[in-house]
Design a protein around this nucleic acid. Structure first.
Lengths: 232, 232
DNA sequence: TCCAGTATTCATCGCATGATGAATAAATCG
DNA sequence: CGATTTATTCATCATGCGATGAATACTGGA
């Protein structure tokens, strides 16, 4: 609720949480049993729809405020089907954000040999690109929104910072306090993400990505390598 | 759970959530009715205990995961007493974190005439001081922990950034994009707080404040005024 | 001394939630 | 064809939650 525009995720276009006519059947009036034409390639459609809805809702409201029922409603299936596929709410969350770790880590790995002179800009740009792309933003938002209160989300977050950033970036840097510097750079970027994508506070929330990179890259570079910043 | 060391808040020393013997009375076996000796100065003691417990639990688990019942248990009172004093859970939260806005704003106001040449260091130092002091940290943590999922907390957070920082700091700066610069500086500090005090990821979480100020102040200064950073 | 106010517990309601087990219908495989 | 597996809904449970209203016991003022 209260959110401005909504992402680009098809199902659950803001608020599948309405009361759904008491006494009425759970799902969208569909008949019991396996539906006709659910074989082979059309198979994972429903499951995928549930995952997508879950991602959207977790991203919008965070773990605790998102109910399994709301997800089922948004995906237009019975609540029991969600449990059938994913076991527990926790399992659903893990499955929904599992898509996060892989692609993000890949994009970081794809940065290449990490030229120390341009590492600030390269990393800042790669970071913002994942957040600007709605497909990757949604699961990331789900993790971040939940990270302060839900242990699994917090773990994913921590492992990303510690595992991916600190080990990979700091490993490529010479200085003795490389880990601290890396984490301070991460703090700048995480803080930016928080104000821009999660809390959406203008003007940060409405600044174009290129401007952002221009402002942030030198700072990240400074944190990582101790390089001085240009005047202006 | 999972937390490392715990704050300095007296009541509710991690986990008042145990099952409390089924069938047993709600509060700590106290007798019904007004207790003897609850007049004048001893008056606000219970109420204050509830608030303190609430702060501690909200700070530790966030709004949604903290139940009124757990707070009552931690403060060793009946749940109904909490409602008696604060009406709703929402009201309790507001009362618990009301202590935040005032002191923080005062400390920012107390920064004085804001010498543009030292604004980065002064502000960074003031910011960290509030977070290092356990008395002010607890309610701040309660707000931040809840800010991503709870509307009231988000509002407080937003109003702090927009109302206090952007209007006051940006107002003292000349540049045209002063608001964006201020928000980027805020992003650096907020991100630091998140990794250090909320998620507690080392080495940031264990670095001494002076070192932090040394690393952060020039960056904040750069964001705010465009000043170049020293080599190193 | 009575009475209003206040601090406190007890008992209970209604609701939403996560989860489970059984029923049903189609797909798939032998 | 018949058996098994898979996709789906229905009905239901137990739990924990926020909230309310009444009962009780003390304080303080008229």
């Amino acid at each position: 609720m209260s959110g401005a525009e909504d992402g680009a995720t098809p199902a659950a276009s803001t608020a599948p949480d309405d009361s759904a006519a008491p006494g009425a059947p759970r799902a969208a009036g569909r008949r019991r049993g396996r539906p006709a034409g659910s074989g082979a390639e059309r198979g994972p459609a429903t499951r995928e729809r549930i995952l997508e809805t879950a991602r959207a809702l977790f991203a919008e409201r965070g773990y605790e405020k998102t109910s399994v029922r709301a997800i089922a409603r948004g995906a237009e299936v019975d609540q029991a089907l969600v449990h059938h596929y994913f076991g527990t709410k926790e399992g659903l969350f893990s499955a929904a954000v599992a898509v996060t770790a892989g692609p993000v880590a890949e994009r970081i790995a794809a940065l290449g040999p990490l030229d120390p002179g341009r590492i600030g800009e390269e990393f800042t740009r790669a970071f913002l690109r994942v957040w600007e792309d709605p497909a990757t933003r949604t699961p990331l938002l789900a993790v971040v929104r939940s990270a302060l209160t839900h242990e699994t989300a917090a773990r994913i977050f921590r492992e990303f910072i510690a595992g991916q950033l600190l080990s990979r970036l700091a490993g490529a840097l010479p200085a003795e306090d490389a880990e601290l510097r890396t984490e301070l750079a991460a703090a700048q970027l995480v803080g930016t993400v928080l104000l821009r994508y999660v809390l959406r506070i203008p003007p940060l929330a409405t600044t174009d990505p290129d401007t952002l990179v221009r402002q942030l890259a030198p700072v990240v570079q400074h944190h990582l390598t101790g390089a001085p910043l240009p005047t202006g």
